[in-house]
């Protein structure tokens, strides 16, 4: 028995079997084995956060000189916009009041009422060249829940996949493991938006299962459908860039440009379901 245990080939085979077992057990995002990620993520999170902070400051410093040139031209443009916006604010105030009155009359529930907004910063990006996953500085200590939607002011970013003590991993909508039930804003047809190996590097994703004879054109807006239970309805995903039509009934697909620029994304909002 002792000879077997000290046999190098036996140890090699044992390690391989254990690693295969680990891969099988950790395949599910909610697997308890994933807690070992804390061994790396807890000590790494402060370092990543510090680097992210310094990187941002250095970027801001160099950006300052470039910004001065732009500021003058922008100032004139902004003065014009202010007067336009002042008028729009008055309209919006009136419309908001009307909207509230109508919602109250219809007993509509605001879809975001059931969510708590938690702001977070990206402290690390995906370490390899395969996926589009990033790490944010909010973890189980902030009571983040798995599958919480992640958004910005512009639209959908993705969902929380794994949660460590001080940080969480977010799968973006352009990652190959991401699937979002969506709707074309114009025609209201249901589609599925998912990540694609080829499109990922360009910051794009694709929309599958476009029903035949659907009125879909470049420039159309795509939003979440609310089906599936992860993403609330009506969050903007992106715009259709092109439509590729094939012969099969559901073979056509569209290329979607997300409203979120994943290359320059720094801060996000996690929607946490209220208890």
């Amino acid at each position: 028995m002792r000879r077997i245990l000290t046999n190098k080939i036996f140890i090699l085979v044992l390690v391989v079997i254990l690693l295969l077992a680990l891969a099988a057990v950790s395949y599910s995002e909610k697997s308890g084995v994933n807690i070992i990620g804390n061994i790396i993520s807890v000590p790494a999170a402060p370092l990543q956060q510090a680097f992210s902070f310094v990187g941002k400051k250095v970027g801001d410093f160099f950006g300052y000189f470039e910004d001065v040139k732009k500021t003058k031209a922008e100032n004139e443009e902004l003065m014009k916009r202010i007067s336009e916006l002042e008028q729009q604010i008055l309209d919006i105030e009136r419309l908001t009041k009307e909207n509230k009155e109508l919602k109250d009359a219809l007993n509509f529930k605001d879809q975001y009422d059931e969510f708590e907004f938690i702001g977070g910063s990206i402290i690390a990006k995906d370490p390899g060249n395969w996926f589009e996953v990033f790490t944010i500085n909010r973890g189980s200590k902030d009571k983040i829940l798995p599958d919480s939607p992640v958004i910005t002011a512009y639209g959908l970013v993705g969902r929380v996949s794994k949660i460590d003590l001080l940080s969480s991993r977010v799968i973006s909508i352009i990652d190959i493991d991401s699937t979002v039930s969506a709707r074309l804003s114009k025609s209201r047809d249901l589609i599925v938006v998912r990540g694609d190996v080829e499109l990922r590097s360009k910051g794009l994703c694709r929309a599958d299962y476009i029903p035949p004879n659907t009125d879909v054109m470049p420039g159309d807006t795509v939003e979440t459908s609310g089906i599936g239970g992860i993403y609330p309805k009506g969050i903007i995903i992106g715009k259709v860039v092109s439509v590729i039509s094939n012969e099969g009934q559901y073979d056509s697909y569209a290329i979607i440009e997300p409203v979120v620029d994943f290359k320059r994304l720094e801060d996000v909002i996690v929607l946490k379901k209220k208890p």
Binding site: V16, L22, D126, G128, W130, S161
Partner: peptide, 16 residues
């Protein structure tokens, strides 16, 4: 762990 996906594949490949 950094990738946040299935654990073990890179460990196995690096090991081999």
């Amino acid at each position: 762990v950094l990738m946040g996906k299935t654990l073990g594949w890179y460990a196995l490949l690096f090991f081999l």
